[in-house]
Design a binder for these strands. Sequence first.
DNA 1: CGCATTGTTTGACAACGATCAAACTATGCG
DNA 2: CGCATAGTTTGATCGTTGTCAAACAATGCG
Lengths: 109, 109
Amino acid sequence: MRLLPHPATEDIELTEVLRALSDPVRLEIVARLAARGELTCGTVGDELGVHKSTASHHFKALRDSGLVFTKQEGRLKYMSLRRADLEARFPGLLESILSAARPHAGSHG
Amino acid sequence: MRLLPHPATEDIELTEVLRALSDPVRLEIVARLAARGELTCGTVGDELGVHKSTASHHFKALRDSGLVFTKQEGRLKYMSLRRADLEARFPGLLESILSAARPHAGSHG
DNA sequence: CGCATTGTTTGACAACGATCAAACTATGCG
DNA sequence: CGCATAGTTTGATCGTTGTCAAACAATGCG
């Protein structure tokens, strides 16, 4: 089982992408993927303070929406952003969301 | 009651905007607002085939998220996109979503 | 005020979703 | 095979949400 089901680029739906990113935990996961390239389920659970089954659930949601790609290597599964596919499907969308997700310098909290 | 509560520009939250837009009905409302400038509750209910209370519910969700502004004129309430506020808060975000929401010429269905 | 129009609120219902915990699967090591 | 590691699945909770319908409220007209 080295390959998991991923939606084809042309089958990625906007509402599903937006829905996937509307959860704060998943948005944070995506932000970290953008910054660090790859993450495992365990890393996310550990760093974000959620149970590993919850992390798995979120990764599945992200995978199903077309946002992330899952690659298996040994016992680990590495998730990465499907940047090129998303850019092809919805130009500029991911970048503007990532930019919006970055903490603002203007201090407001 | 001519003024309704709207979040300040700096209080608009990304996850709430994305969540508001993750519903197909609301995304369609926003797309129409972008194309036509203003809409009333009744118009949306009529054109999108949802009950007027459902349309009202969606407009409230869009208002609470910071996506639309509501202006009362006589018995009608006109909703419009808060384009400038959203651009100030999350540059490029709304435009990329609107662009992604437009039907693609490439035919895929 | 009475009446029509427009939108909101409430109630009911079904579906979904986020979370944790525990059981299970899959993989690698020896 | 036995054992450890890494994720997944299932079950249980609890809250949220999309929808309609009916009651309500607000507005304008005369």
